[in-house]
Design a protein around this nucleic acid. Structure first.
Lengths: 358, 358
DNA sequence: CTGTTAGCGCATTCAG
DNA sequence: CTGAATGCGCTAACAG
């Protein structure tokens, strides 16, 4: 394995046999003029070009199939319209939906997103962050994993402008956009309670540096607090990246469910996100059989495409909007606006399905 | 909406208030030497640097938090280690899995993938292809939608080196990597036949420019040919992007299923890919109820995460490997190798689940 | 309206 | 071993 395009690595060879593309000079020569006019044409300063010249330029560009080199432009202008998008886990549908919003916004605002996938590995994340820096992206949208770095611009001066998605970064004062976790969890809990479930267990991945997990769990506990003991509430942690402990946790969960049944309590599982929900559903199906939904209720934050098929009640996030807003925030900062760090918390929407019929 | 970073658009403003990053000159000054030495250090030519100088450089870099500018390097060297990855549809799990393979390979080979998402729109695709060209990517991996363009390098000279994933492009002589469609479909058909189903219907999206859809359908017909009429075979087209026609097609399908039941035939649906399978399952569940699987069998190419939960038999593609191989092919071409266009067809793996229990 | 000049940040001859 | 000079493709003053 090479060191990657990070720079501090081995010498790179020449560009093979690439049939060099036309440059601005070629076009200028072809059109019988200077590079400046070409540049002006490229930048839409048509008011400053005689119709004749303009036509010649157009023809020359066409003939040479010329394409301005963004790298060179960026070098000169000081901005390359590149935006970094660092995603913790693309396998999570949430990420790709956010990505879609980001793309839409980039398209609208004239940016080109440089998408990086940390695949749940903290050092990949760090590595990509450096890489992005190296490509001089004008800003980054981070769905953080564990960045603790000072790489990100703390809203004030310093690093590169950043906006956080879904998760905040400890001690980093930056814009954040995501779900209104407290409200979303309350929505779910109340739904469950209203349906008559009185033994709720919140299932979440290890908190680690992920603020949203912590927030959701806290919100769950707070919601249960409100019931004055009329209903039980417990939290179980599921480490999806460690099959062994997952199995153990699942076994504990099974025991909990069995006990609840004996007590005559009505048990409901609250998955903190889609990956957890899937794992849970898979397990319940295996452990309780095809009809597991008649034994335990399940609700989840996130609304993956399979939720409808499996008939699982969810709390859907406006993911596209989250991505879109993130870019807008970033854009403002890039353009120089410097308000205090903002937080955009979108409301979740309860989608009731069979898994919580009561 | 702006034109995006394509170039032929409005003038861009200056970079706001960015606290300019350190350049190689800054480092040189800080280290009390010339830029050349810094450059050498960056490129790992340590044998040519006195230990003392080297230490000073390291210190200077550290102090200034210097990061070489890839854009500038690229400009000079003629190669920027950027690879374009054009995906037709990120909502399709297949794409994100391929992407993971691509990323792994890029990491290993020292490339940085520039990921573009065409979102099933042909002009987005064209647009992105130009954009990639503009950023001077060294090659592109294309999961084509409808590129008919001459933009892509026809293995010989011309455009930019390209390798196709899953789908070939009409009249473009380039490397292709994907599933061995004929074998995969045969695998599925034979499984169905062996399980006693005698009325198979293949469901696929409109062919359009997508070769794999066509190939799979052709393979299906070929497979049925072999049964000498012992079993029926039909093809239904489902245009997922047009709800109206989809509804109509689904109704026709329902009728087909009903008729088969009357005849006492055993009906099985063969989905050409995951999106089709999901739509089908959703519909069947709505139309036939929770127990739909007892009425019709379902098998699909692609193995999305929810297939296990829904108990659907699938033919899994080695998606990661496909992505990985694509990068390897591309890398060879970028490095100058110029063999004739190759095709890597990976075998699919049958994953039997409840939906085809017989 | 148009062309000339000077760098952007870096890698590379080519002389010390 | 080291550094000064040149130019990659392009934009931005600054003159004509």
């Amino acid at each position: 394995m090479s060191d990657g395009p990070e720079g501090t690595s081995g010498t790179a060879a020449a560009p093979a046999n690439a049939p060099r593309r036309a440059t601005i000079s070629d076009v200028a020569r072809e059109a019988g003029t200077g590079k400046t006019s070409i540049s002006r044409y490229l930048n839409g300063e048509f008011g400053v070009l005689s119709p004749d010249l303009r036509t010649r330029i157009e023809a020359a560009i066409e003939r040479l199939d010329y394409r301005p080199n963004q790298m060179a432009r960026g070098l000169k202008r000081g901005r390359n319209r590149l935006l970094g998008l660092l995603l913790a886990d693309l396998a999570n549908p949430y990420s790709v939906e956010v990505l879609q919003g980001v793309e839409a916004a980039c398209h609208a605002l004239g940016y080109m997103p440089l998408i990086c996938h940390a695949a749940n590995e903290v050092d990949m994340e760090r590595r990509y962050l450096q890489l992005l820096t190296t490509y001089r992206v004008e800003g980054v949208i981070v769905n953080a994993l564990g960045v603790r770095e000072t790489m990100l611009k703390p809203v004030g001066s310093g690093g590169i402008p950043a906006v956080l998605v879904d998760r905040t970064v400890d001690g980093l004062d930056a814009d954040v956009v995501g779900l209104d976790n407290a409200a979303a969890v309350r929505l779910g809990t109340e739904h469950l309670l209203a349906r008559g479930y009185d033994d709720l267990v919140f299932v979440v991945q290890p908190f680690e540096q992920v603020s949203s997990r912590r927030e959701r769990e806290a919100a769950f506990r707070a919601s249960m607090q409100g019931t004055k003991g009329a209903a039980r509430g417990a939290t179980h942690v599921l480490d999806l990246h460690d099959e062994a402990t997952t199995e153990a946790a699942l076994a504990t969960l099974d025991a909990h469910i069995a006990q609840a049944a004996e007590r005559g309590a009505r048990c409901a599982l609250f998955a903190a996100n889609a990956p957890v929900a899937l794992r849970l559903a898979l397990h319940l199906k295996a452990a309780l059989g095809e009809q597991w939904q008649q034994r335990v209720a399940l609700i989840a934050i996130d609304d993956p495409e399979w939720a409808a098929l499996a008939g699982i009640t969810t709390i859907r996030q406006p993911t596209r909007e989250i991505g879109y807003r993130a870019v807008e925030f970033l854009h403002e900062r890039i353009e120089g606006a410097a308000p205090a760090a903002r937080a955009a918390a979108f409301a979740g929407e309860l989608v009731v399905r069979a898994s919580t019929l009561g």
